[in-house]
């Protein structure tokens, strides 16, 4: 299954690394990534497309626990398509 994750956090030099490590370790492969810092590099906004046999909540709950992450929203690809249709 493919999922879209929309993630917001307080920027720090290693936040992206932290995030990607959790994705890999929890069994999700990253297929697409885009992100940028906003507010003078104070916050980081990232969208990830990930793929896994595992339910996405396993990943989103782990990301949610990371210190510095302020928001995670996970949507399955079908929902994403429906929303944009």
């Amino acid at each position: 299954m493919k999922y879209l994750l929309i993630i917001q956090g307080e920027n720090s030099p290693e936040l992206l690394e932290r995030l990607l490590r959790v994705c890999r370790h929890r069994g999700f492969s990253v297929q697409k990534i885009s992100g940028e810092t906003t507010e003078n590099e104070k916050s980081l906004h990232i969208t990830l497309t990930v793929c896994s046999d595992r339910p996405v909540s396993l990943l989103s709950k782990q990301i949610d626990k990371l210190f510095g992450i302020t928001q995670v929203v996970a949507i399955s690809q079908e929902q994403a398509i429906r929303a944009s249709a």
């Binding site: 030099p13 290693e14 690394e17 932290r18 490590r21 370790h25 990371l66 210190f67």
Partner: peptide, 14 residues
């Protein structure tokens, strides 16, 4: 060390 610690701490700071 920050990179090394990511997988074995709840959080780490530099």
């Amino acid at each position: 060390v920050l990179g090394l610690s990511l997988a074995c701490t709840k959080h780490s700071f530099l």
